[in-house]
């Protein structure tokens, strides 16, 4: 009986050490790498987020009927079908904490006095999932 107790004690102690080590190793694990293509894929996957649920998105759609982030983004992106002038995307990813990053996707166009950039920012967690309530609409003009 005493021998069993001794083994049980050792077993529990070893288990605690292993679990603690795993916890430390997970906490220190670097954020998964995300390239620009993956950031765009995440945005497209979440295109159904409602503008009314996002920050500073009231009235940002190019059409009054725009309801979602997808409607809004499409309204500006379609202007890249214009061949005159310069069209480009700006995609950025910044660490905001140990397990959170802020992605920014902006659609830009410049053609004389037509000069604008509109888009969104959103948070991405450690496992590369979007926080759907973190969308903010960016842009001026």
């Amino acid at each position: 009986m005493i021998k069993f107790k001794k083994y049980a004690f050792v077993g529990i102690t070893v288990s605690i050490i292993i679990v603690s080590a795993l916890k430390i190793s997970l906490a220190d694990k670097p954020l998964l790498v995300l390239d620009n293509k993956s950031i765009l894929k995440l945005l497209i996957k979440n295109d159904d987020v409602l503008l009314k649920d996002a920050a500073h998105c009231n009235g940002v759609g190019t059409d009054e009927t725009d309801k979602t982030i997808g409607d809004y983004i499409s309204g500006f992106w379609v202007m890249h079908s214009e061949k005159q002038g310069q069209n480009w995307l700006e995609i950025k990813l910044d660490n905001i904490s140990q397990d959170k990053r802020l992605a920014k996707v902006l659609i830009y166009r410049k053609n004389g006095e037509e000069n604008w950039g509109w888009g969104v920012s959103f948070e991405i967690n450690k496992t590369n999932n979007i926080n759907r309530s973190s969308f903010t609409c960016l842009g001026s003009g």
């Binding site: 830009y108 410049k110 000069n115 604008w116 950039g117 001026s140 003009g141």
Partner: peptide, 12 residues
């Protein structure tokens, strides 16, 4: 510090 020349500053 919002000065980017590629952004639109008319309303700004």
């Amino acid at each position: 510090s919002y000065h980017k020349s590629t952004d639109n500053h008319c309303a700004h």
